[in-house]
Design a protein around this nucleic acid. Structure first.
Lengths: 187, 187
DNA sequence: CGGTTGATGTCACTTGGTGTCATGATCGTA
DNA sequence: TACGATCATGACACCAAGTGACATCAACCG
C-alpha cells in the first residue's frame, strides 16, 4: 500500500478546475483546492508557484510544439509560413481537447488576474517562436514581429473558436484571421 | 494651514518610483511607500487598487489619446493608417518624457508581475483602438487584428527605443517596425 | 537491518489587500 | 457665528497568498 495517493499534481489541477469553475477563481482558496485533493496548502505551493499557475501547467508543452513546428518547416518557407504551419499543428492539438479547452478559457475570461497570466504566457510563447525564427535565419525586428503577429492571429481565432455558436474548426478560423491580417496590412 | 499635504496620489507615485527603482519592486512594501509619502498603507490602497497599479496610472490618458487620434484620422484613411497616425501622436508624447519613461520601463522589465500588468494594459489599449476603428466602419475581425498589430508595432518599437544605445527617435522606430510588419505579412 | 531519500505535513511568519469605525478640518448654510 | 454634513485620512482587526524551517514516515538500498 502506497503511503500517498498517486498524481498529486493532477489531483490538484483537477480540484482547481472544478472549484474555479463552480465558485469562480476569487471565491476559491488554495487551502480549499488542497483539501479537495487530499493535500495541504503547503503541498500545493510545492507543485505550483502560485494560485494562477495551476491553470497554465500545459503551456510549456505548447511552447515546445510551436518551436518544433517552426523548426520543422521547409527551409524555403517564409517566416510567416513557418509560423502558419505551427499554428496549424497547434490547432489540430486543441481540436482534440475542445471541451476542456473551452471550460478552461471560460474560467480565465472571468478573472483579470488569470487574463494577465495568460497574456504573459502568450508573450513568452511569442518570444520562443521568435527565437525559433532566428535559428532559421530571420533577422530582428522581422523575427519578433512575425512571431507576435502569428500569436495574435492565434489568439483572435482561438477566442472566436471557444465562444462561437457556429462550430467552425479552429484551423479554418486561423487561416481566415491570417488572411485578414494580410489584407489589413497590405500597403 | 492645510491639515494634509497636497497631492497625496502624486507623492505616493513618486515614492513608489523611487523605492522600486532603488530596491526593486519585490523588496519594497506598500507600508514603506506610504511612509515615504507621509501616509499609511490604508491610504495607498484608497488611491491605487494594488501595489502594481501605482506605476500604471497614466495608462487611461494614453488610451484616450489613441482613441482620439484614431477618430480624428481622415475618413479616407485605411484602418491601419488611422492607427499609424495614433502611434505617431503617442510617439511624440513619449519623446517629451523620454527619461522618466525609460526609468519606469526599466522597473517593469525587472519584474514579472509588473510585466503582466503592462501586458493587460496594452491589451486593453488594443481593445479601445479596435472599438475606435469599428466606429469608423471597420468590421471584425479586421478591426481587432489591425488594433493588435498596431499595438504590437508600438511595443516592439518602444522596447528598442528605451534600451537602445543609438538614439533614434521613437517615431522613426515605429515607422520602421510598421514597414517591417508590412514586409513580413506580404503574401 | 539500519541509514538515506523524498513526498508530505506542521507551524510560524510576512505581506497584500479589505471592512469598519474614529477623527478632525473644511465648507455650506441658517 | 454656529452647527451639521462632508471628506480625506488614520487605526485596527482580519483574511488569504506565499515562504522558510523543521518534523514525519514509507520506501528503497546497501
Amino acid at each position: 500500500m502506497a503511503r500517498w495517493q498517486p498524481d498529486a499534481r493532477g489531483r490538484l489541477q483537477q480540484a482547481a478546475l472544478t472549484l474555479y469553475g463552480e465558485r469562480g477563481y476569487e471565491n476559491t482558496t488554495v487551502a480549499e483546492i488542497a483539501e479537495h485533493a487530499g493535500l495541504t496548502k503547503r503541498t500545493f505551493f510545492r507543485y505550483f508557484a502560485d494560485k494562477r499557475e495551476v491553470l497554465f501547467f500545459g503551456s510549456q508543452a505548447l511552447e515546445e510544439l510551436f518551436v518544433t513546428e517552426v523548426g520543422a518547416a521547409p527551409e524555403s518557407a517564409t517566416p510567416l509560413d513557418a509560423v502558419a504551419a505551427a499554428l496549424d499543428a497547434a490547432a489540430a492539438m486543441f481540436e482534440q481537447r475542445r471541451e476542456s479547452a473551452a471550460r478552461r478559457q471560460q474560467i480565465i475570461a472571468a478573472n483579470r488576474e488569470l487574463q494577465e497570466r495568460e497574456l504573459i504566457k502568450l508573450a513568452s510563447l511569442a518570444g520562443a517562436v521568435a527565437q525559433a525564427l532566428r535559428l532559421r535565419g530571420a533577422e530582428d525586428p522581422a523575427a519578433i514581429l512575425t512571431a507576435e503577429a502569428g500569436i495574435t492571429v492565434f489568439r483572435v481565432a482561438f477566442e472566436r473558436w471557444v465562444d462561437q455558436a457556429n462550430r467552425q474548426p479552429l484551423q479554418r478560423l486561423i487561416r481566415e484571421s491570417l488572411d485578414e491580417l494580410r489584407a489589413v496590412t497590405a500597403a
